[in-house]
Design a protein around this nucleic acid. Structure first.
Lengths: 350, 350
DNA sequence: TTGAAAGCGCTAACAT
DNA sequence: ATGTTAGCGCTTTCAA
């Protein structure tokens, strides 16, 4: 391995001169720089990253901490960020937490000890105090979920608006008994979404507690079970709104298993637009999330931020809107008509 | 950041004692080790990788190089590997190549200069020579795709068998004009799958060239276009077999757009079992791939291999079988019957 | 069984 | 414009 010393010896100069020349320090003469770079090239010199990192310079690694990469949602984020960071010369280090705060802590510890340039995190419900402390040591930004303790750098979507639009759509179609299956409100996203549901219902329908089913947002099974509970209610809802991607999956599975047909027997609005949602029944009406754009924006901002190397983290918040994608799984409540069936089929292939 | 010195100061011992205790050096008494590890845990000590790397030890980073994480297929792999490596104390560095050999080279270069413990790679069709050279410098293993130049460490699925089973299933149902839409045969997986198709057809039907459509395996659009071409043939096929996940997506989209109904108008067998494939029409009959198990096996083997730190890379090959998942999108060719329609609906919810 | 001390390759404060 | 020197945190001799 060729070191800075080898080059120095060969040129009869001091190691620091070589180091500075290579770093393009203004105090070094052009002639010397010229000679140094040439010899370095000739000898096949490659800077030792480890040594450089020991001197406090952070690596070109950016940690991405999220619950589960198998969620198409997060995969899109990872992809967009990867592209973004790659073109800026950074590498992505992936850590999955499974929404477990201790795993999260462990991951953040490892990243911190690897001297990462920064951390992009989708935090768990209640991050460990140590996690928060460690995050503050390097540039960081929260994605989707925002935890006050972690900081004011956040890129997210307007969760309240998203579910508000989904629910309003159903209200406008004439639905009054609308079920909501979503994440518990200990997660900021969960409570924001629930708020959107209640807001849309305000003044239109009484919020019947039994119609609201809250569970761990990443549990597909909960979505299925909650659907079963809603359907077996004395007065079942005429429509269901999903409050997370996995819940949506559970709901769709359960409806299929029970032979419940949308939109004839029940209207359904999903959350997120995963692969296959448009294939479900007559096409799933769902809340489209601008994940790709969100992640790209986050990546760009982050690179800029890291480059500044400013310890002074100025607060920054970006809220992207979600948009309702209307397909065939929603229509006005009541028995089906020929035209409505045909319309919903068209929706599926649109 | 907590260092070895901090622990030493707290315990009133020398830094070297702490270092040795942490390294489980036989010369340190059990009692000391006990105390050291406990305090280390308490203080949240994490070894500084940079410093360790300077001493010649490679990092705890394992590079994962693959085409596109958005492919559910690769997301599953990343997840399984992440779990596996995490529990062994390794971190995953994710690099996406988009099947571009120059991007691949760039990624591998970065990983190599970061002193990664090893690299797990799904290689592009024709990796750069430099890529191959760099890979040989650290422990590495190929996943899914196998390139002879890169080496004999490979975990993959039996691609030939996978498509053979898919095609045979159709042949047994009575199909004779079977279309195949898959990846070009410059990729080892592509040619193996094509081989499976031809093998299943041997002696049963003449392999009509127009029925075989080959393109870049990751292009959804190619799948859609190829489907259009097959359907507009003078004598269109009665069934189609997909040879990649994205092709499957394209095919499904196109059939939906054209209003072609499976299995009445056409039988379809997909590749992989992505979210939503079971929701498509009467449920997609498809080739299920043991991706999770494959990745886990690969991860375990890799960790073991890296731990051995053996420069002597003994050849190792693992071939996992794929299994056909029969749902509603396939049946015998010809006009529909009442019973067959009912049967296919049952298949969808099974 | 433990401590002291010498570096690994690089950077940066301090001297020329 | 360049040289000297002192570490960064860890491992690893060499001493005790």
């Amino acid at each position: 391995m060729v070191t800075i010393k080898d080059i120095a010896a060969r040129l009869q100069v001091s190691p620091s001169t070589v180091g500075r020349a290579l770093a393009d320090d203004p105090r070094i003469s052009a002639a010397t720089k010229q000679k140094v770079t040439q010899v370095a090239d000739e000898m096949g010199y490659v800077a030792n990253l480890a040594a450089r990192m020991m001197r406090g310079v952070s690596s070109n690694l950016v940690g991405l901490v999220l619950p589960d990469i198998r969620n198409g949602f997060y995969a899109t984020i990872a992809h967009a960020l990867s592209k973004c960071l790659q073109s800026a010369g950074y590498q992505l280090a992936l850590s999955e937490t499974d929404d477990d705060r201790m795993v999260e802590l462990q991951s953040v510890r490892e990243l911190a000890s690897a001297n990462v340039a920064g951390i992009i995190i989708v935090p768990t419900a209640k991050p460990h105090r140590e996690t928060v402390r460690l995050l503050k040591l390097s540039p960081h930004v929260q994605l989707l979920r925002k935890h006050a303790a972690i900081g004011d750098q956040w890129f997210g979507i307007d969760d309240t608006l998203a579910i508000f639009e989904a629910t309003s759509h159903l209200v406008q179609l004439g639905h009054r008994r609308i079920g909501y299956i979503g994440g518990t409100d200990d997660l900021p996203t969960g409570s924001a979404r629930l708020k959107g549901y209640h807001k849309a219902l305000a003044g239109v329908a009484s919020g019947e507690p039994a119609l609201v089913q809250l569970g761990a947002p990443s549990e597909v099974d909960f979505g299925a079970n909650a659907t079963r509970r809603l359907l077996s209610l004395p007065k079942p809802p005429t429509a269901i709104v999903a409050g997370s991607v996995q819940m949506t999956q559970g709901i769709l599975e359960e409806l299929l298993a029970q032979g419940v047909r949308a939109p004839d027997d029940l209207s359904v609005v999903g959350f997120g637009d995963e692969l296959g949602f448009r294939w479900w029944g007559p096409g799933l009406t769902t809340v489209g999330l601008p994940v790709h754009d969100l992640a790209t924006a986050c990546g760009l901002w982050f690179v800029h931020h890291v480059r500044q190397n400013s310890a002074t983290a100025s607060p920054y918040t970006s809220i992207s809107p979600a948009t309702l994608i209307v397909r065939g799984s929603t229509r006005k409540p009541g028995p089906p008509t020929k035209t409505s069936v045909r319309a919903s089929l068209r929706g599926a292939t649109a």
